[in-house]
Structure formats: structure tokens, C-alpha cells
Simulated assay, not measured.
Amino acid sequence: MSMIPVTEERDDEGQYSSSWSEADFLEALREFDGVAGTRDVAERVGCSRKTAYRWLTDLAEKNEIDQRTAGRELIWLLAEDG
């Protein structure tokens, strides 16, 4: 299991510009056989849990992944057709 390389650089306005893409988070889920928690995805991608949560939530809103709750943790699943 390889970690996706990530670099962050500042843009012209001094804000951090991420090199992450939706594909990075989808690939991380695939590496966990399509089911993983936010922390697992964050560690695999190499970002904070908060960043992973934002990306994963966006993917769920686009119906590219599904979200379930297991106790107090969110579990992310690849969508059936994804």
C-alpha cells in the first residue's frame, strides 16, 4: 500500500494550494477494499482528518461515495456504481 505523494505550495495570494484531487481520495478508499474511516483515508492520502473529511463529504454529496455511521465514526464506502 503506497502513500499518495502530496506537496502543498502557496498560490499568488499566499494561500496553500493542495495537490490533492478527488482521485487521490477515491484511490485511498479502493486500497481499503472500498470501505474506510476518515482517519484511515487521511493517513493514506497524507493529510489531516479535517481535510480528508471535507474531500470525502464533497464526494458523498456528488454521490461518488456513500457515508455510514458506525458508533461515533463515519465510514466511507465506494458507491455501488463507482
Rank of each mutant, 00 (worst) to 15 (best):
M1L: 13
S2W: 07
M3W: 06
I4R: 01
I4Q: 01
G14K: 03
Q15D: 14
Q15A: 12
Q15N: 14
Y16I: 15
S18E: 05
S18T: 15
S19Q: 05
S19K: 03
W20T: 13
S21K: 13
E22L: 06
E22C: 07
A23V: 09
D24Y: 08
L26I: 15
E27G: 05
E27C: 11
A28L: 00
A28T: 00
L29S: 03
E31V: 12
F32S: 03
D33S: 14
G34Q: 05
V35Q: 09
A36N: 02
G37H: 05
T38P: 00
R39A: 10
D40E: 14
V41N: 01
A42Q: 01
A42G: 01
V45T: 00
G46L: 00
G46H: 00
C47W: 00
S48K: 06
T51C: 11
A52C: 01
A52H: 05
Y53F: 14
R54P: 02
L56K: 03
L56Y: 03
D58H: 11
D58N: 11
D58V: 07
A60G: 03
A60V: 06
A60T: 07
A60L: 03
E61A: 11
E61S: 12
N63K: 14
E64C: 09
E64W: 10
E64D: 11
I65C: 04
I65R: 04
I65M: 03
I65P: 06
Q67V: 12
Q67M: 14
R68F: 13
T69N: 13
T69W: 13
T69Y: 14
A70G: 08
G71A: 08
L74I: 15
W76G: 05
L77R: 07
E80R: 07
